[in-house]
Every structure is written in structure tokens, then in C-alpha cells.
Amino acid sequence: MNVYITDARRTPVGIQNGIFAHTGAAELAAPVLKELAESSGTLPDEIILGNVTGPGGNIARLASLTAGLPDTVPGLTIDRQCSSGLEAVRLGAALIRSGEAQCIIAGGCESSSTSPRPEKAIFSSEWIGDPEMGMAAEWLAERERITRAEQDHYAVLSYKRYTESVKKQRFQKEIVSIHGYIQDEAAMKERPIEKMALRAKAAFKAGGTITALNASAFNDAACAVTLTSDRAAGLKVEASATAGADPNFPAATPVPAIKKLLQKTGLRASDIDVWEINEAFAVKIIYAARRLDIPFEKINPNGGGLALGHPYGASGAMLVLRLFYGMQERRETYGIAAVGSAGGIGAAMLFKRV
């Protein structure tokens, strides 16, 4: 059975302790679920949401009830760290493809502002290695000889693309108002990006290459998409793949997942028109572009997580949302969304415009 994405919505993205400082993860997700359910005209068989930093419990169920959906609609919350939102979409597609469901709303939500988790979770055994994400990014940069100048160059590119997208109002139709906010917090202030790149200090070690500019921030947001077995204009889910790799280099993990996906479908990297790869760190994008021979022009054309933010549980779903709107607007055929996660797991999904 084929699976199609027929709609996608998100909240504005807030900065930690910013506009959504007192809004929990389920509260962020509720208006997105309500909007998608109303626009589809049919009740979903399931709500599936990714979440990473808590507060625990079944956030998808709570968000569904908060949104006013009937109590007959079940909810499922999953955690695969930064790829949680993409994994929710992947799981929803698999359920529809198997015949277990006909319509599912899937995505993710994160409230770093209200998270009760004081420190990072354990992702790997101590004898293997379980580094902080920033230090792990430093290790990848060192291993691959990716300089700070290269990372800053890409970061500035991401900021400029995002700023241009805001000016051209590319995000207006996808954002659901919450607490009266209809714009990302990052878009509410001017940022002298080139000067920031020059002045930013190494964040994780003396003389390091990772800074506050070329690494993502902590954020609050929710995002979800509508998946259905009914053919409609939008995106068709073609295939997906996950892959495990060295937990000490999580920023490298989109690459093995993408390679596995391309091998499964018989496509080459050059066949893909657009890539949405999560910008947790600029080094992640540079590494993927090198290994897969992808020009920057095809990666995150409207800007990514470096500029917009990285609300962990929602970020994977936001990649799919970017493809949903962007591929239709630009009339592209194939797009891939990919994320690398803590613990050394990569996830990737292939979509085709219909």
C-alpha cells in the first residue's frame, strides 16, 4: 500500500527560555494536531510523536486530548533522540503500508525550556564511549580535517538562506499560531552573522572549531505531518532506512543511513534533487556533503537548524515539512530527509513529489 503526506504544520520555533518559556511539549504539539486533524477532514487512526527531553509520560496522548481530539484516537510517544520526529513519520508510514492504519498524524515536539532533565542521558556504554555532542562534533572535525573556517562558511550560508526565506514569507502557510506568535523567535531580531562568526569563541575546548554560531541552539517547537493511504497532491513515501555507527561520532551517522537507503532504492546521490539534513552542527553537513558528493546548493535550501533552531524531538519532522512545501514549490521529484542521533544512529527517508 502506498503512503502519502498530504499536509504539514509546525509552531514557530522558540529559543530556550524565550517566547515559549512556560509552554510544555504537549501544549506546543496540541495546536499543530488540531490544525492537521481539522484540515484533513478525517480523524487519524493514531497520533505518533517523538520527544527527547521529557517530561515523560505519553506526550502524544496528552497532546491529542489537549487538542480536543476524541478519546478514541490513541497516541504513541517515541524517543530516538534527534531523529525521533523523523522516526515517528517513518513508523506512521510503515503502519499505513502494512494495512494497520489509513491515516496517521506523526511528528514531534520539544520544550527545552520546561524539560525536567538536568543533564544528557546515557547513550552508549562507558567502555565504548559516550561523549557530549559538542565534543563528539569536535572529534569528527579533527578526524576529517574540517576547519573552523569551513564550518563558519556553511553556518553563514544557512543563516542567510533562512533570513531570505523569512523575507520572502516562505514559512507563513506552515506555521500554526500559538499564544499569538506566528513567527520564529530567530526571525524577530537582526543578527550580524559575519561579525558573529569572527567573534564566536570555541564552545567545547580551547582552540576548538565548534562555536555557538556553527552549532545549533536549544529550542522549543512542535511539528507534524498527515500521512494517508489515499493518493493526493503532496509527497509519496518511497523508502526509509536506519543505520548504526560508532557512538563517538554521532554527527557522521546520516551518511551510512543515506547509503543504505540509496542502495535499497537503486538511486544515486546525484538523482536526488534536494536534501534536508539536520543542522545540529555545521560539521555534520560538511561531512555528509563530502562523503556523498552533494553540492551545498542542494542541501537545506531555505536554511536549517543552525539558524532556525534544533528542537530535538521535532527536528526530524521539520525536515519532512521542509520537503513537503519546498519540493512542491520548486517542482522537484526526489528529496531525502536525514538525521544523525546520539548513540550513533542515523535515519533517512526518501520522498517523491506527486
Results as ranks from 00 to 15, higher is better:
residue 1 M to W: 03
residue 3 V to P: 09
residue 3 V to G: 03
residue 5 I to K: 01
residue 5 I to N: 01
residue 12 P to L: 01
residue 14 G to M: 02
residue 14 G to T: 06
residue 16 Q to G: 00
residue 16 Q to M: 14
residue 17 N to R: 15
residue 19 I to N: 04
residue 25 A to P: 15
residue 27 E to W: 03
residue 30 A to P: 05
residue 30 A to I: 07
residue 32 V to Q: 08
residue 32 V to M: 08
residue 33 L to T: 01
residue 36 L to E: 05
residue 40 S to V: 00
residue 43 L to I: 10
residue 43 L to K: 12
residue 45 D to N: 14
residue 46 E to F: 02
residue 51 N to V: 12
residue 53 T to W: 13
residue 56 G to N: 13
residue 60 A to R: 09
residue 62 L to H: 03
residue 62 L to C: 04
residue 63 A to D: 05
residue 69 L to R: 09
residue 70 P to N: 06
residue 75 G to D: 10
residue 77 T to V: 11
residue 81 Q to R: 13
residue 83 S to F: 02
residue 86 L to M: 09
residue 89 V to W: 09
residue 101 A to C: 13
residue 104 I to Q: 06
residue 106 A to E: 04
residue 106 A to Q: 08
residue 108 G to L: 03
residue 112 S to R: 15
residue 115 S to V: 09
residue 116 P to E: 05
residue 118 P to K: 07
residue 122 I to L: 06
residue 123 F to A: 06
residue 127 W to S: 11
residue 131 P to Q: 06
residue 132 E to V: 14
residue 134 G to E: 08
residue 136 A to F: 11
residue 142 E to G: 08
residue 146 I to S: 03
residue 147 T to S: 15
residue 151 Q to N: 12
residue 151 Q to V: 01
residue 155 A to Y: 03
residue 155 A to T: 07
residue 158 S to V: 05
residue 163 T to K: 11
residue 165 S to Q: 14
residue 167 K to W: 02
residue 167 K to Y: 11
residue 168 K to Y: 01
residue 169 Q to R: 15
residue 169 Q to L: 04
residue 182 I to S: 14
residue 183 Q to M: 11
residue 183 Q to C: 13
residue 184 D to M: 03
residue 185 E to T: 08
residue 185 E to Y: 09
residue 192 P to Q: 07
residue 195 K to Y: 02
residue 196 M to C: 09
residue 198 L to H: 12
residue 200 A to S: 15
residue 201 K to P: 02
residue 202 A to F: 01
residue 202 A to E: 10
residue 204 F to G: 12
residue 207 G to R: 04
residue 208 G to T: 10
residue 209 T to L: 00
residue 211 T to I: 06
residue 218 F to A: 11
residue 225 V to N: 10
residue 225 V to Y: 07
residue 226 T to W: 01
residue 226 T to P: 02
residue 228 T to A: 06
residue 230 D to Q: 15
residue 231 R to A: 11
residue 232 A to W: 00
residue 233 A to V: 04
residue 237 V to I: 13
residue 238 E to A: 14
residue 238 E to L: 14
residue 241 A to W: 01
residue 244 G to L: 11
residue 244 G to A: 15
residue 249 F to K: 10
residue 251 A to F: 08
residue 253 T to Q: 14
residue 255 V to R: 12
residue 260 K to A: 13
residue 261 L to K: 08
residue 265 T to E: 08
residue 269 A to D: 10
residue 271 D to F: 10
residue 272 I to E: 05
residue 277 I to N: 04
residue 280 A to Y: 03
residue 280 A to W: 05
residue 281 F to D: 04
residue 283 V to N: 04
residue 283 V to R: 11
residue 284 K to Y: 00
residue 289 A to T: 14
residue 291 R to N: 14
residue 292 L to C: 07
residue 292 L to Y: 04
residue 297 E to H: 08
residue 297 E to M: 00
residue 302 N to I: 05
residue 304 G to H: 02
residue 305 G to N: 07
residue 313 G to R: 11
residue 318 M to S: 11
residue 319 L to T: 05
residue 333 T to C: 10
residue 334 Y to C: 05
residue 335 G to D: 02
residue 336 I to K: 09
residue 336 I to L: 13
residue 337 A to S: 15
residue 337 A to Q: 05
residue 338 A to F: 08
residue 339 V to P: 02
residue 340 G to K: 08
residue 342 A to M: 09
residue 342 A to T: 01
residue 343 G to H: 10
residue 345 I to K: 11
residue 345 I to C: 07
residue 349 M to Q: 14
residue 353 R to Y: 04
